[in-house]
């Protein structure tokens, strides 16, 4: 069964239609890179999946939960779908450890000792176990983003969403974050990423979704979509990002 089913969704911000009849599915273990020009609806699509953005039409299913049903427990859904943002959004008043353990202890009622072990565990996965006592403002952008990834991982989600997570980073810090993503991809995590890193998308993604004007313009296996784009819009987009 598909992990996510998106059926003909529409999203409007006032008079502006951001998503216009978008349908797709996400299978367990897939790594999907969502590409497209800014304003094409990529980030909005991602944010609809865990209910951060309400939709005006269509349906989104996560397993057997209808995301856009008011009766759905979004809190439960969000424990299963993690999201990492472009601007990290760490909690500045909390240590790295507490940033990570807060949701497991508060939402999942995990014991403090277990949560600390979990924090160490996820920090190891992003290579930052020595920063467990640091505060966010003592870390570089790349380190903050890796902590944000660790914070999401600590909820042990079934799927992770990444919303342009390297776009705010200095070029020399992008590599360390991409390496964490690659390791996660190898571990079998289902991932959906909005990204401008075409090299990364080419190497890691199993499928590409190209969005244009609020629609899925092209989608398919990575090699096929990037190797032989079918539409002039994708040809022109690839031309503009590769040069």
């Amino acid at each position: 069964m598909s992990l996510v089913r998106i059926e003909n969704i529409t999203k409007r911000f006032g008079p502006l239609t951001v998503l216009d009849g978008v349908s797709t599915t996400v299978e367990p273990g897939e790594i999907i890179a969502v590409i497209g020009r800014s304003g094409s609806g990529k980030s909005t699509l991602l944010r609809c999946i865990n209910g951060l953005e309400p939709i005006q039409g269509g349906r989104i299913w996560f397993e057997d939960q209808l995301v856009n049903d008011p009766a759905t427990d979004l809190r439960r859904l969000r424990q299963q779908v993690g999201i990492v943002f472009q601007s990290y959004n760490l909690f500045p008043h909390l240590s790295v450890e507490r940033n990570i353990t807060l949701a497991p202890t508060v939402v999942k009622k995990m014991a403090a000792g277990d949560a600390r072990g979990l924090a160490l565990d996820v920090l190891k996965r992003v290579g930052l176990e020595d920063k467990i006592a640091a505060y966010p403002d003592q870390l570089s952008g790349g380190q903050q983003q890796r902590v944000a990834i660790a914070r999401s991982l600590a909820m042990q989600p079934k799927m992770m969403l990444f919303d342009e997570i390297t776009s705010a980073l200095d070029p020399e810090l992008i590599g360390e974050v991409l390496r964490v993503l690659e390791a996660m991809a190898k571990s079998g995590m289902t991932m959906m990423l909005v990204t401008h890193e075409m090299g990364f998308a080419r190497n890691v993604a199993s499928r590409i979704i190209f969005m244009h004007q609020g629609k899925i313009w092209e989608e398919g296996p990575t090699a096929k979509v990037l190797g032989s784009p079918a539409t002039p819009e994708l040809v022109s987009f690839l031309g503009s990002v590769l040069h």
């Binding site: 424990q79 760490l90 909690f91 999401s152």
Partner: peptide, 15 residues
Amino acid sequence: TQWEASAALGLSFGE
């Protein structure tokens, strides 16, 4: 974004 990040981790309004 602080509301958003905490909502995305499953925290309720009160939490």
